[in-house]
C-alpha cells in the first residue's frame, strides 16, 4: 500500500495561487476557505522589507493530532496515508481545528470570510452549506469529499476522489504522464512552474522520495511530532518561497 505524500519545491514556487484556485474549483470551496493556500509573509520594515510566501496544504501527518483528539473518530487515516474526515460522524466540536498546528481545517457554518456572502446567493439544498454553480467531485461524505455540509469540519483530502483511483503500485502521480494525469491532485496538476510533486513516500524509486533525499526535504513544525507527509525543498531560499519560522506574522 502506498503512503501518499507531497513535495513542494520552494525555489520553484512563484506564489501565483494557481494551486489555490484549482483547489477551490475542484473541491467546491469558497474564497478564503480553499483547502490549499499560499500564505504571504511580510517581514522586516522599510526600507528593507522582505516578502516571502509559503504554499500550505494539509500536511496529512503520520501522527495527526487532529485524528487523535477527534472524539468520534470522524477524522481518520486511510491505509494509503491520507487524513480524511467522515462527515457522517463529525459532531462539529472543532477540537481538530484547535489541535491542528497548521491551521488547515474549516468549519463552514460561520460568518463568511469574504463578502458578498456567496452561500446566501447559491443556497445549499438539504444539509449542504451551499450550492455551487460548478460542482466538482461526486459527493462522498464518508471521505469528506464534495460540498461541505453544515455543522461539520472539512479539510484538504489530497483530492482523494482522484488519487484513490490511481493504479496500484504507481510510484509517482505525475501530471506530465497522460496515463496518470486524471489521478493527480488538482494543486499538483495545475502548478505552472512544476513546484509540486506527488508520490509514494514508501517507494524508494519514487521521485518524491529521491527529491527529499537529494535536496534535503524538511517538514513544517517538525518539533510538534506530527510528522507531516508534505515535505519542502528550501534550496538557497533566494527565490522568495520560504518556510516561516513560526506562525506569527508580526515579529519585528
Amino acid at each position: 500500500m502506498a503512503k501518499w505524500g507531497m513535495v513542494i519545491d520552494l525555489e520553484k514556487c512563484t506564489g501565483c495561487q494557481a494551486c489555490s484556485t484549482a483547489c477551490q474549483m475542484e473541491n467546491n470551496r469558497l474564497p478564503g476557505e480553499n483547502y490549499q493556500d499560499v500564505l504571504f509573509y511580510k517581514e522586516g520594515k522599510q526600507p528593507n522589507p522582505t516578502l516571502s510566501w509559503f504554499p500550505r496544504p494539509c500536511m496529512h501527518c503520520e501522527e495527526p493530532s487532529c485524528m487523535h483528539v477527534c472524539p468520534t473518530k470522524a477524522t481518520f487515516k486511510t491505509e494509503d496515508g491520507v487524513v480524511l474526515i467522515d462527515w457522517n460522524k463529525c459532531i462539529g466540536c472543532k477540537y481538530c481545528m484547535i489541535a491542528c498546528p497548521y491551521g488547515v481545517r474549516f468549519y463552514t457554518d460561520e460568518k463568511p470570510l469574504h463578502e458578498p456572502n456567496i452561500k446566501a446567493v447559491f443556497k445549499g439544498e438539504g444539509d449542504l452549506s451551499w450550492n455551487p454553480p460548478y460542482k466538482g467531485p461526486q459527493q462522498d461524505a464518508t471521505h469528506g469529499v464534495g460540498i461541505q455540509p453544515n455543522g461539520v469540519v472539512s479539510k484538504c483530502t489530497f483530492c482523494y476522489h482522484k488519487i484513490s483511483k490511481a493504479p496500484k503500485g504507481t510510484p509517482d502521480l505525475d501530471e506530465s504522464n497522460p496515463a496518470l494525469v486524471e489521478f493527480v491532485p488538482a494543486c499538483v496538476r495545475t502548478c505552472a512552474p512544476k513546484a509540486r510533486y506527488f508520490g509514494d513516500l514508501d517507494n524508494p524509486k519514487s521521485q518524491v522520495n529521491q527529491l527529499i533525499s537529494a535536496k534535503k526535504g524538511v517538514r513544517l513544525l517538525d518539533h510538534t511530532g506530527n510528522k507531516p507527509q508534505v515535505y519542502y525543498l528550501t534550496g538557497s531560499g533566494a527565490a522568495g518561497g520560504a518556510i516561516p519560522s513560526n506562525r506569527s506574522t508580526n515579529k519585528a
Binding site: 493556500d37 509573509y41 500550505r56 491542528c100 497548521y102 491551521g103 506562525r247 506574522t249 508580526n250
Partner: peptide
C-alpha cells in the same frame, strides 16, 4: 495568535 494564516489575517 493565528495558526499559519500569513498576512491574510492580523497577527493578533
Amino acid at each position: 495568535v493565528p495558526l499559519f494564516k500569513g498576512t491574510w489575517v492580523a497577527g493578533m
